[in-house]
């Protein structure tokens, strides 16, 4: 589904650019869940930004293929319409725009890009009710403005709700667990597990192993200084939890083998 080859990318800064991704390789197939772990500043969120086309990042080398298409050529909304979804680490607030209206616009813009007719209001409402249950969202919240006045937990749940609504092929969860208490974390993980299928894939970016108890990954990758330095199964996450990221720094060469 997704193939990242030798990806090198810079973030634009006032002083020019700073290289964050330094030759990253990753392959993801349908039905897989990949966890990416790593210390702060290792490039996890940059990877999410580069994959989704956020402004302010420059790809210097390498390629990203999504179902055979060159992803890097596409505008952010085109990537979204291809089926890439980012659950934001810091979801933005959009005053005056209700969740329902926001999602309706999104769903219909995506349908339009595929040459489909807009969804009828009845079907749309039905879908909304159905998906709201998945992440235990109070239907009242749907009438409220996008993320305005939401608690941290509500914002993250709303991200997963949007994910359910847009039914993407590849979802990137960018530190969705940070700042969540255990109950909220379970709800979010539960939602993801219900959506998880043999046809879609997930990249779960996280700092903590805790989330992976609830969203069990097929692969765990350790990212360090812009590269994936080690890949393994879920036990790698437990190992990291025990030894910490300092262990990665100290045993870099060893790990690379």
């Amino acid at each position: 589904m997704l193939e990242i080859k030798n990806l090198k990318a810079k973030v634009e800064t006032d002083e020019g650019g700073k290289e964050i991704l330094k030759g990253l390789n990753l392959q993801i197939k349908a039905g897989e869940v990949h966890a990416i772990m790593g210390p702060n500043g290792s490039g996890k969120s940059t990877l999410a930004s580069v994959l989704t086309g956020r402004e302010g990042y420059e790809v210097e080398e390498g390629e990203v293929l999504f179902e055979g298409k060159n992803l890097l050529e596409l505008a952010p909304e085109e990537r979204a319409r291809e089926g890439i979804f980012l659950a934001f680490q810091y979801p933005v607030e959009i005053p005056g725009v209700s969740n329902t209206n926001f999602l309706k616009t999104a769903v219909n813009d995506i349908r339009k890009s595929k040459g489909e007719d807009p969804m009828s209001s009845v079907d749309f409402l039905k879908m909304i009710k159905e998906k709201a249950k998945l992440v235990d969202i109070d239907p009242q919240m749907l009438g409220r403005y996008v993320n305005v006045g939401f608690s941290g937990g509500e914002k993250k749940r709303n991200e997963i709700f949007q994910l359910a609504m847009l039914n993407p092929k590849l979802s990137i969860l960018d530190e969705t667990d940070s700042g969540l208490d255990i109950d909220a974390l379970k709800i979010v993980a539960d939602g993801v597990n219900k959506i998880r299928s043999k046809d879609n894939a997930f990249i779960v970016i996280t700092h903590y192993q805790r989330l992976l108890n609830y969203i069990v990954p097929d692969f765990v990758h350790v990212m360090y200084e812009g590269k994936i330095v080690k890949s393994g199964d879920k036990s790698l996450a437990l190992h990291l939890e025990e030894y910490g990221y300092d262990w990665v720094a100290e045993h870099l060469e060893e790990i690379a083998k």
């Binding site: 952010p76 909304e77 979204a80 979804f85 959009i94 926001f102 616009t105 999104a106 847009l166």
Partner: peptide, 18 residues
């Protein structure tokens, strides 16, 4: 803008929405 785009919403629709 990026948040809207990431949900598949075009620039024009995003501006109108906002």
């Amino acid at each position: 803008m990026f948040y809207c785009n990431q949900r598949g919403i075009s620039e024009e629709d995003a501006v109108a929405l906002i």
